[in-house]
Nucleic acid binder design. Structure first.
Lengths: 148, 148
DNA sequence: TTACAATATTTGTATATACAAATGTAAAAT
DNA sequence: ATTTTACATTTGTATATACAAATATTGTAA
């Protein structure tokens, strides 16, 4: 992934903006790659992410705030995202009995089933994406990203 | 920017997925930061990007293909993006006389004027974003990103 | 108890994005 | 010359995202 090549420019970009553009381009590449991997399952990356969060709660229902704080893209309309998963039968949603302002969201058996299939696909994609990296280089990358 | 802290999890994430999540989180942070910086100008990052590309052509008109191949997010509806800039008076658009399938897009004086103001704001934001990095660390980051 | 503030979610609106189909123009093939 | 193919852009549709406003419920204060 060469910056100048991808955005078709001959001029040398200064280090700071170049780093940011570089990161954007890599992000795009990864996002497209993972989205393509999830395509057969007809779920978005966000929906996949929510399913994983729900599974991680091991049966304990989540409300929208729980989901939001664990999501990668903090978005305000998690409601509509859950609507989609509900329509697919991958989650259940009910009103919390002890506090009727809240909702209780859980993953269904069906949801767990498709999720475990998605997991394998995503794992393969991730392996592909970082195939040029050694473990040490990935550690180094994480250290650098930590500085942002 | 600590991954586990941001997505509020106690479990240690394996190196490969962690690297990818980390990159997503950093991308989000940068995107939000830059979008906020452009807010007073009422243009999106994409629109800002298009204006910069047009300026870079130094008067030579661009068509939609030219823009697309230089844009960070390759998108199919550059038409509508240019519509927005047109409505703001920042670009001109006309049909290419030699090949009427094409359009000729140029930045206006007004566009150049606001763009130079945006530049300063964006430059400051970029400085802030990479303030914890030494030049050497940024070089290293670019080398690693190059591996994707 | 009534009014007010805080909390949790939902809805509305505008823009962004992805993909497919439609439109109009130019070039190539028969 | 007419048909076909390729090219460049536009439009339509569905979903995603960001932000503000609306709704419903609970907790608190006078």
């Amino acid at each position: 992934m060469n910056v100048e090549e991808v955005i078709k420019t001959e001029t040398k970009i200064p280090l700071k903006p170049r780093s940011i553009i570089h990161l954007f381009l890599v992000h795009n590449k990864i996002k497209e790659h993972l989205t393509r991997a999830l395509k057969p399952f007809e779920v978005s990356l966000q929906q996949f992410n929510v399913l994983r969060i729900l599974r991680g709660r091991k049966g304990v229902p989540a409300n929208l705030s729980n989901l939001n704080e664990r999501m990668i893209n903090k978005m305000s309309n998690t409601t509509r995202l859950v609507d989609k998963l509900l329509a697919k039968g991958y989650v259940d949603r009910s009103i919390c009995p002890s506090n009727r302002r809240k909702v209780e969201i859980t993953i269904t058996m069906e949801g767990e089933k498709v999720l475990s299939k998605m997991d394998q696909t995503i794992k393969r994609s991730e392996e592909e994406l970082v195939q040029n990296f050694s473990a040490q280089e990935l550690e180094q990358l994480n250290l650098l990203l930590h500085k942002f």
